[in-house]
Structures are given as structure tokens and as C-alpha cells.
Design a protein around this nucleic acid. Structure first.
Lengths: 209, 209
DNA sequence: TGGAAAACATTCCAACTGGCATGTAAGTTC
DNA sequence: GAACTTACATGCCAGTTGGAATGTTTTCCA
């Protein structure tokens, strides 16, 4: 704010920056733990260790583990959203558009980060507090991605796009589960190709009508 | 074996019967815990309490928690298989066949028991031992259900049936996740109806060719 | 420049976890 | 009916868990 910023940059200085840095470290570590260890084996102790943060610091920012997890959901969703936005170049026109679109959804909803989402999601089933935190955030992710598709493929009829989008998202989430368990990758690719073929046919049929 | 079986039936008697009874009680309690509490909150203590079985008894039958879980997978799959088989009446002919087929898969792969499967599945992602136990069992369930469909709809070309089956299974698994988190049920039904429509079109197209 | 407050570090604790050791009862075999 | 095996019960332990109390440093503002 003031013009008298000392030039020495060693160490972060302002409180806000200090704060955000450890917050991010904690949230990143949480996501990392979820991916590597799963929800059940993730302890605040481990999170603190990975973040290089003391237990007191964690407590200062997130008084309870539930609060940490709830915040991690937002953090995670933001990262996924950024990932999708970054990967979404030009989708091209109808022939390839479908293929690229499906691939994009695969990247976003079956990528590394999605494992963490699955963990939180399943945990939320029996944890109302966590569920309350996840629901709106997840809805927002779904909607914003759909919005992205609408802007990238303005020519596609809305109903067609919506239907194909949500079908693809759910199909891919199912396939992601299979992938996480180490199912046959080639069979999955083959299945995804079949789906692309079908989706394209649906699109053409809807447009021709 | 011998003819001198005492008539008094109070209490189960033979060792094998005694054994199986507590084993089943433990396995059922495990599944119940997974559904109600989730994997993370499920403790052997709680399982024993629900099964009305002492800790020692549990240890006698399943020396470790991992072993109990691994066995629960088989138990669970058997129950699901039975559920599907019981619900699978006559699927009818091509117009309704697709609809009934999708509904059947929904019942089997998104029903109450499937919540337990999800829990174990997600847990298995970061637990090689559990994964090793689940993989073959789950594959067997998928195959046997597909086999059931083949027998119920002998007229459908194999490739068509296979593709539609696996797409449906994965789609429904994705939708089941959404359902567990308390997503909008009507939107889910609508999406499923769209899929039925599409699947029927695919079928007709494949047959006509 | 001095002191309040925010950020962070250390230490501790009560509760709970899974697993095991030891003890008792029921069933099986000869 | 005695020796033996299997099924179950009880109590304990070492390790972890999440959370809180207390102490120290860093930044901020008047």
C-alpha cells in the first residue's frame, strides 16, 4: 500500500501473505494426503507434517479437522476448474468436437485430483457436515464446466449439449472408479470410443431434426 | 452323521453351524457398518457390538480387520448377485427390454448394498491388500451379470449387448455416486430416460445394419 | 518505539483403535 | 468319559487419533 516498501525480500512479510501461504500449504497437503493415503488414513498429524506446519498453526487456521476438510473441498475444486480451463483449447467443429469434449471431461473428472474428490465424496455420504460443504461446491464445478462447453460449442442445441454433457460426466465418473481400482485400461479406452461414436450420432440426429 | 441325533433343537448345535452363524453375523454387521458409518468410521469394535459377538470370537474367525473386510467383499457380492437374480424376471422384447435392463442394472449397482461396495472400492484404491481381494470378486460380478443378460436377451448381437451393458454399468455407477451425495433425483431419472432412449436407438441401429 | 494482536511452535491428554494373551465353555473323537 | 479340538469371552496394551493449553515469535499500528 505505502510507497516505503523495504527492498529486502527475504521471507514473506505481510501477515496476509504469511497466512495465505501456510493455509495453502495445509490445503495442498490435505489434497495430497487424500490422493496418496485416502480419507481413512489421512490424519491431521500427517497433513501438518507434509505441509511443514506445526499443529498449533493448523489449529490457528482451521480449528477442527472437519473445517480443514470442508475448506479443502473448495481448494480442490478451484484447482480442478483451473486444470480444465487450461486444458480447454479450441474444441474444433462437430466431428472432433465431441471427441475432444469427452477427452476434456475425462481429464477433469478422472484425473489425479479426482481421486481426492472421490474420497471426499464417499466420506461425505456418512458425514452430513462434509456433505453440506461439498454439495454447493460440486454443483458449481459441474455448472461452470457446462458453461464452458456452452461457450466453446455455441452451435450445439442446448438440450443436446446438456444431455450429452451430464451423461458423459457420470459415465466418466463411473469409469474413473474402475480406473482407480486398476481395471483394464484398453477396455476403458475402447468403451470411451464407443461412447464418442454414440454421442456423435446423437448430436447429428438432434441437429438434423 | 450318526443316527443318534438328539431331538432337542434348542440352540444351534454342530460346530460347523455354530461357526457359520457367527461368521455371517460378523459379515452382515460389517456390511451394515459400511453402509451406515462408512469405511473410515467402521471399527471392529462396532462390528462386534452389532453382530452380538465378542472380540475374541471375531479374532477367532478373522484374525485381522483386513481379513474381515476382504471376506466381507465376497459376502457382499454374493448378496448383490442374489438380489439381481431375484429381480430379473422376464425382460420382455426389444422395446421394453432396454428399459427393463437399465432398471435392473440400476437396482443392482445403485441399490443400498452398492453403498458398501463404493466404500470398499474407494478404500481399496490406497490399500493394495483390499484391492487384491476386491478385483477378482468384482470382475466376477460384472461378468456374471452380463452373462445373465445374455441369457435373458439372446436375440441381441453380442457386441451391442456388451457395449450397452458396460456403458450402462459405468454410467449408473457415476449416477449412484451423485445419488449418494443427495443430488437431484428427478434430474437423475430424466438423464436415465434419455439414456434409455439413446440405448434403444443404438440397439435398433446395430440390428438394422 | 512500544505494545497489542496475529501467526506460529510445543507439549500434553483423554479417547479410541486394532491386536493379542489368557481363560472358559461347547462340541468331537476315540 | 477322557483327551482333544474348536468356538467363544474378557481384559489388557501399545500406538494413534483429534483437540486443547500454553509459550514464543513476527507483524502491525498508533
Amino acid at each position: 500500500m505505502t510507497a516505503t516498501q523495504p527492498a529486502r525480500e527475504r521471507r514473506h512479510r505481510t501477515q496476509a501473505e504469511r497466512s495465505e501461504r501456510t493455509r495453502n500449504a495445509l490445503l495442498d497437503a490435505t489434497v495430497e494426503c487424500l490422493i496418496e493415503l485416502g480419507y481413512a488414513r489421512t490424519s491431521v498429524h500427517e497433513i501438518c507434517a507434509r505441509a511443514g506446519v506445526s499443529k498449533g498453526a493448523q489449529q490457528h487456521h482451521f480449528s477442527t479437522k472437519a473445517e480443514l476438510m470442508a475448506t479443502a473441498v473448495e481448494h480442490l475444486t478451484t484447482r480442478i476448474q483451473a486444470e480444465i480451463a487450461a486444458a480447454a483449447g479450441d474444441l474444433g467443429d462437430p466431428p472432433e468436437l465431441v471427441e475432444h469434449g469427452v477427452d476434456l471431461i475425462w481429464q477433469g473428472f478422472a484425473g489425479t485430483l479426482s481421486a481426492a474428490v472421490m474420497e471426499l465424496w464417499v466420506a461425505a455420504r456418512t458425514d452430513p457436515e462434509l456433505a453440506a460443504a461439498i454439495k454447493p461446491v460440486d454443483r458449481a464445478l459441474g455448472r461452470s464446466t457446462l458453461e464452458l462447453f456452452r461457450s466453446l460449442a455455441p452451435g450445439v442445441p442446448q438440450h443436446t449439449l446438456d444431455t450429452l454433457y451430464w451423461l458423459t460426466v457420470n459415465l466418466i465418473r463411473g469409469l474413473a472408479l474402475d480406473a482407480q481400482l486398476g481395471g483394464d485400461a484398453s477396455r476403458r479406452t475402447q468403451l470411451l470410443n464407443e461412447w464418442k461414436r454414440i454421442a456423435l450420432a446423437v448430436y447429428r440426429d438432434d441437429v438434423a431434426r
